[in-house]
Design a protein around this nucleic acid. Structure first.
Length: 477
RNA sequence: GGUCCUAUCGUCUAGAGGCCUAGGACGUUACCCUCUCAAGGCAAAAACGAGAGUUCAAAUCUCUCUAGGACCA
């Protein structure tokens, strides 16, 4: 098994979507598990739809996910000579032939066959033709076997038998001289010495045709693994209308690559009851024995949970560096540099268990970056009342009086005030939280007061009291 | 339309004839903890698509149907 070679062969016609990413992942894991080689091949023969941006998206996406390839990227667009040679070879060996039937002729044959309830496959008119009409356009067709059966041995689906009579003499070279998909795939896989083909099961029906070509090239048929597709909630193949489906989108929303990889590996693959895997654990345990045969519905909730799990396991330092691109994007870099770093790290530690994405994490710490607190409107109406203004005034005095502004002393000050005034802690804590963060939800109040520091807290409580004075009219009753 | 694939809680799955009163995870709900929200803890509700057969015994094997999906046109 030491010569095992697999490939991921996407078409660069859009973003790297999570279905493709999962196919790449399974290829990667299989290669690493078996100490084989993982090859990246860009199938950009469709010049109309292939773009450089899309190639970049694929490469960046795979790199971000940590799915490193050993060879490539190879580009089909740079290999046209190779395909031409192989067409010529098949032609010379009598394994393919020129077909001069016009599209109109083929169409009428089709409709006729259909009306007579026959299979609408090409009737092989030109198969034994020997003349070469000058100047007449032609396609090149492969001479498929007309009888017998072809067995696809699949590591996921088992043995699948196809009846050769169902298959036609398919086109390998179009009239414009461009080779077709089934043909170039096989030429490349032969040329790259691919031993195992792991791809979506949407290719299953193409496989017998490709097996014909392997035979024609006298190349041992690779092992196949057709993995089930990913579906949306409506059980249809996952597409844009199901929401974010690109790897890039998840990156921008603050997902961690290890979370996405972990989620994708469990979509269709399992290892007992285990849910959380390191990449090494995936590599160690991966096998096609425990891949499921049916399509899996993509569940964003579970991905979110996994992402939260991974965020929680990161250190504050790690999270801060992960947050940097997001901080930069919001133009908060200057702000970051002017703030106390150790306090920010403490805040990250307090906030990370409440965040499911990096974006959420940053959002939940906005009050730390901002100079002026913006109050949640509904909460302000409810909590910034005359009665609460009294509490805040008292807290302003007490907090200002603390020499050693530590969590312990802050807690004592707030709790003793509540007790002395016969109040529940929440009665004081909630308006105070709103004053200091602008929110009703935050990490522990005593912790964040210490983290923000005496100066900022005192100023914020003072500002809140001022706000209540100027807006008190609407807050009465 | 033809060919092919698939079928366990809402979702991801465990399950390879008796360990199944069907296990785990996400989500949902209740409770505990609690200054809010999370996290954590502890519970609960929730599934073998239908029908025949094989067998002492079927989620597991066979067949039919049904439903989804993919490919080709």
């Amino acid at each position: 098994m030491d010569d095992l070679r697999v490939r991921f062969a996407p078409s660069p016609t859009g973003v790297l979507h999570i279905g493709g990413a999962r196919t790449a992942l399974f290829n990667y894991l299989f290669a690493r598990h078996n100490t084989g080689k993982f090859i990246l091949r860009i199938e950009d023969t469709d010049k109309e739809r292939s773009t450089k941006e899309s190639v970049d998206a694929i490469i960046n996406g795979l790199t971000w996910l940590g799915l490193h390839w050993d060879e490539g990227p190879f580009y089909q667009s740079q290999r046209t000579e190779l395909y031409k040679q192989h067409v010529d070879q098949l032609l010379k060996e009598g394994k393919a032939y020129r077909c001069y039937c016009t599209p109109e002729e083929l169409e009428s044959k089709r409709t006729k066959a259909l009306s007579e309830k026959r299979k609408p496959i090409y009737d092989r008119t030109c198969r034994e033709r020997t003349d070469h009409p000058e100047g007449k356009p032609y396609v090149i067709r492969f001479k498929s076997p007309m009888y017998g059966t072809t067995m696809v041995k699949d590591m996921v689906k088992g043995n699948i038998l196809f009846n050769n009579e169902e298959l036609e003499d398919f086109v390998i070279l179009r009239s414009d001289g461009s080779p077709t998909y089934n043909f170039v795939v096989v030429v490349d896989d032969v040329d790259m010495h691919i031993t195992h083909i792991i791809r979506g099961d949407d290719h299953l029906n193409n496989t017998p045709k490709q097996i014909f070509l392997y035979h024609a090239f006298d190349y041992p048929v690779p092992q196949f693994a057709h993995i089930p597709l990913i579906h949306g909630t409506d059980k249809a193949r996952l597409s844009k209308r199901h929401g974010a489906t690109s790897v890039e989108a998840y990156r921008e929303e603050g997902y961690l690559p290890e979370a996405l990889v972990n989620y994708l590996v469990r979509l269709g693959w399992s290892f007992g009851d285990k849910e959380v895997f390191t990449l090494q654990e995936m590599i160690d345990n991966f096998s096609f024995d425990n891949i499921s045969k049916s399509a899996a519905v993509f569940n964003p909730e579970k991905l979110l949970w996994l992402n939260a799990t991974y965020i929680r396991e990161k250190s504050a330092e790690q999270l801060l560096s992960l947050l940097e691109p997001f901080i930069k994007a919001r133009g908060l870099m200057d702000c970051l540099n002017s703030l106390d770093r150790s306090n920010l790290l403490k805040l990250i530690d307090e906030t990370k268990i409440r965040s499911r994405t990096l974006l959420e994490l940053l959002d939940m710490m906005d009050y730390y970056f901002k100079t002026d607190v913006v109050y949640d409107e509904i909460a302000a109406k409810k909590l910034f009342t005359q009665e609460k203004a009294v509490y805040l005034q008292a807290m302003l005095t007490r907090l200002s009086g603390i020499e050693d502004f530590s969590q312990k002393h802050i807690e004592e000050a707030i709790k003793s005030y509540a007790t002395e005034s016969g109040l529940k802690l929440g009665d004081v804590a909630q308006p105070l939280r709103l004053a200091v963060t602008g929110r009703t939800v935050s990490p522990g109040l005593f912790e964040i007061i210490e983290i923000l520091g005496k100066e900022r807290v005192v100023k914020r409580v003072f500002n809140a009291i001022e706000y209540m004075k100027t807006n008190h009219g609407q807050n009465i009753g």
